[in-house]
């Protein structure tokens, strides 16, 4: 493109230069981008220490939010499981006849919002308590069975949410035969509250960390640009556009993101591996088999995309400000 000499290509003598056909230029665009991307990678390789520091900062900054995310995700699944299986326990009065108990069971089975009812007679209750509590023979010294008969009510599908289950509980508790009813939802609500809080903190933390990553990458790229001040001036003198000069720096930012993303994966995987053994030990105490869910492929790709995005954003910020301001003297 010649602004001043519109007919430059057909002027005689020195100006007689062959122009590339448009399709060659079109093909050259991706080829150029690839070349410059590889060239910036080579540039990183030549100065590995400074670039690795930036990439490590980028990666480790992403590790904290992503590990916290894994934690929240796993806790949420546990909470969800418990919420689903919520059951209402009815402790019956002790002065009931067996027939009254059977009637109550049938009645409860037929009432709205109940899926199934299981009776745990006091004898069975005592037997189970003996086996599991560890008091064992000591309980034989009791003169009478202190336990009440218990009805375990599983709510119907539509009554499993905390509010509906609470309604059911209140309704069942009003019956004459029931001493009291219990459904331990309080602590689930609290857990949910804590999870929400952690999620909020996680979000805020992620935003702050991402912002600092952008600034750190921006600063590294800025130093890169300033160290190449003379080169940039020469390029401007021979007619390079800002876009052309910017491109390698933007690619550098993208590489920071790509490698920083890998660092984040690695560090998160290590952290999860580290925590997992502790979690397994803990869940063994509760006799519930539990597997810590790591990051899925989709989530890994999202982290990667975020890392690349942050790298690009940081370099764009630096490039915008500094390439324009360097003018040949």
């Amino acid at each position: 493109m010649s602004l001043l000499f519109r007919n430059r290509s057909i002027e005689k003598g020195a100006s007689n230069r062959g122009r590339l056909p448009w399709w060659r230029r079109l093909i050259m665009v991706p080829v150029h981008h690839a070349q410059q991307a590889i060239a910036s990678l080579g540039e990183l390789w030549r100065n590995p220490f400074a670039s690795f520091m930036t990439m490590a900062v980028l990666g480790l900054s992403l590790t904290l939010p992503s590990s916290l995310y894994v934690l929240v995700k796993n806790t949420s699944t546990i909470a969800d499981n418990w919420q689903e299986a919520s059951e209402v326990t009815l402790f019956l009065r002790k002065d009931l006849q067996q027939s009254e108990i059977d009637t109550l069971k049938t009645q409860t089975e037929l009432s709205e919002g109940v899926e199934s009812v299981r009776l745990i007679p006091k004898e069975q209750g005592l037997k189970e308590f003996k086996e599991q509590s560890g008091f064992g023979e000591t309980l034989d010294y009791l003169s009478s069975n202190p336990l009440p008969d218990v009805l375990v009510v599983i709510p119907a599908e539509s009554y499993r949410s905390p509010q509906r289950a609470e309604e059911l509980l209140n309704r069942l508790e009003k019956q004459r035969e029931v001493a009291y009813a219990k459904m331990d939802l309080e602590w689930l609500n609290r857990l949910q509250g804590i999870l929400n809080l952690i999620e909020d903190i996680l979000g805020a933390l992620a935003v702050v960390l991402c912002l600092s990553v952008v600034l750190i990458v921006g600063n590294t790229i800025r130093l890169n640009i300033l160290s190449k001040r003379d080169e940039i001036m020469v390029m401007k003198l021979v007619g390079a556009t800002n876009a052309f000069i910017q491109r390698p720096f933007l690619y550098t930012g993208v590489w920071y993101g790509i490698i920083g993303g890998l660092v984040a994966w690695l560090a998160t995987a290590l952290l999860i591996w580290w925590v997992e053994s502790a979690v397994v030990d803990l869940t063994e105490l509760y006799e519930t088999p539990f597997k810590l869910n790591g990051l899925t492929l989709g989530e890994l790709l999202i982290i990667w995309a975020i890392a690349v995005g942050l790298g690009l954003a940081g370099s764009y910020l630096a490039v915008r400000r500094h390439i324009q301001s360097i003018e040949p003297e």
Binding site: L3, L4, V234, N242
Partner: peptide, 23 residues
Amino acid sequence: IKPSQVPYVRRDIGMIFQDHRLL
């Protein structure tokens, strides 16, 4: 000539400096 067009103007001018300005 707008600032964004300056590079294209410079491509039409060969410039030589006392200090060469080589990379």
